[in-house]
Amino acid sequence: MREAWRWFGPNDPVSIADVRQTGATDIVSALHTIPTGEVWPTDQIQAYKALIEKDNNLQSTLVWSVVESIPVHEDIKLGRDNSQRYVDAWIASMENLAKCGIKTICYNFMPVIDWTRTDLKFQLPNGGYALRFDQQKFAAFDLYILQRENAEADYSDEEIQQAKEIFSAMSNDEKTLLTNNIIAGLPGKMTDAYNIEDFRRMLANYKDISKDILRKNLFSFLSQVLPKAEQLGVKLAIHPDDPPRDMLGLPRIICTSEDLELLFTALPSPANGITLCAGTYGSRPDNNLPVMAKHYGSRIHFAHLRGVSRDKNEQRSFYEAEHLSSDVDMVGIISALLSEEKTRVSNQNNNPIFIRPDHGHQILDDINKPGNPGYSCIGRLKGLAEIRGVIKALSSVH
């Protein structure tokens, strides 16, 4: 497996020089400055790649190997008549990346919002901070801040009352912070930041979009992208919806093993693969991650390794726990990935599995430093070291 590190470009508080010190060999990144729906020009890809790799002749080697992500335009998800130009632009970006030797592409198909958390600085008992999704806070936002039309239909009477009490106890600053956390854009999001009115308008676009329609639009998109990906030797790795369930009246279609079965049955192309995000899939108790990692081994081109701890009494709420101490069987997942890697070697399949420590606690000196939520240096380094130790231990028996 190839150890990778997510980097957000020249403005990332964690520099390329810092990344070299982690021992990672590969960079996961994207051209974040290019608007969604526009082609990534070859010269800009080459310049960005050169920025990452310019000191490789003097220091340890770092290679931009994985794109996370090329955003999928909302018009594609909505299946609008004008969406073809955005599909063509996505394919052109993929072609340009392949010309530059970058052939693993993570993407997602989440409508309107990307990964979502209610708390970006949830304090842990040890004094560090983690990301958290609180279902009751989210309901308070949906019902009483956003005031989404017909939102009450998605909640029980008890949930509505709990949300009302939480909302009533919040200060104006707390309401603003919660709103910003949900709609203003988190690091790595492939969707835009919104104000509340724009957000309502975007949600309204999906009023008549069911799961079946959204899935049909995904399959239509991939039916055009995958043949070209095969020709280029590109591996596509769809990221699950985070959190993996319907929310805000929006359908979500990459949440469970059953969703993946539908995807691969409809589109069996070898270029059609997944990003195994352990934390996202693991935030649902009905997803068995080691079983999924084994079953979909040949489809795994990229893996986000992190753990989550679900609330005992509200399984939809969770915080991002330590990489090896959570409700996710990280050792079982890594064991399955190592088995898949061994199978690939025996089959002379040279496609690597890229892994990265996904998110990390804000701890030690990073607590008082500026940084992107979930992407502090020390917390991710701790996670990578733990993952590396598991790989080292298990490799002796694989």
Rank of each mutant, 00 (worst) to 15 (best):
A98V: 01
R356N: 14
E230I: 03
N205S: 12
P290I: 09
G188C: 02
T256R: 11
L394M: 08
Q348A: 12
L186I: 00
K294L: 07
W64H: 02
P71G: 05
L124T: 04
T22C: 13
I27Y: 01
A169L: 11
N11Y: 08
V72A: 09
I70Q: 04
H239T: 02
V14N: 11
K164V: 08
D358C: 10
T191P: 08
G307M: 02
V345L: 14
K342A: 15
I334G: 02
P370V: 05
S257V: 12
L177R: 15
I363D: 04
S223N: 08
E174V: 00
Y155V: 03
G383R: 03
L289W: 02
Q231A: 13
K235F: 15
N172C: 05
A293V: 04
S156E: 11
G282T: 09
R20H: 04
A204W: 06
R2W: 12
G9W: 00
L267F: 08
Q162F: 04
N57R: 13
D208M: 08
P352L: 10
L124I: 06
S395N: 15
D286C: 07
N96P: 09
Q224D: 15
E261Y: 15
C100E: 10
R306I: 09
H323I: 14
D154F: 12
C277K: 01
S60L: 12
A184W: 02
P35S: 15
L124M: 13
D88S: 13
N349L: 05
I196N: 10
R356S: 14
I254H: 03
W115Y: 15
N96M: 07
S15G: 01
K175G: 04
H323A: 13
K392L: 14
T280D: 10
T42H: 11
A139S: 03
K211A: 09
S60M: 09
H361E: 09
S376I: 00
R299V: 01
T265V: 13
Q162M: 14
L276G: 05
Q44S: 08
Q362D: 07
D134W: 02
V234N: 01
E53A: 06
L267I: 04
W90I: 06
M110W: 01
G307P: 04
G127R: 01
P285Y: 13
G307A: 05
G101F: 03
L214K: 04
V225Q: 03
N108H: 07
N313K: 10
G360L: 09
L178S: 08
L248A: 01
R310P: 00
L276V: 03
D114E: 11
E261V: 11
I253L: 05
P243V: 05
I76E: 04
P244Q: 10
I378K: 14
G128Y: 06
I105F: 06
R6T: 14
R299F: 05
A4C: 15
S257W: 06
E174N: 12
P125V: 08
N350I: 13
L250D: 04
D365W: 11
S346D: 15
A140E: 05
P285S: 11
A293T: 08
L364A: 15
E261A: 12
Y48R: 03
S223M: 02
L124Q: 10
S65Q: 01
F138V: 03
H295S: 11
N272F: 07
G297R: 06
G297N: 06
P290N: 11
N56D: 04
L263E: 02
I300H: 06
I183S: 04
K369D: 06
S156N: 09
P240L: 02
M110H: 11
T104P: 00
F219A: 00
L250S: 07
D212H: 14
D43H: 13
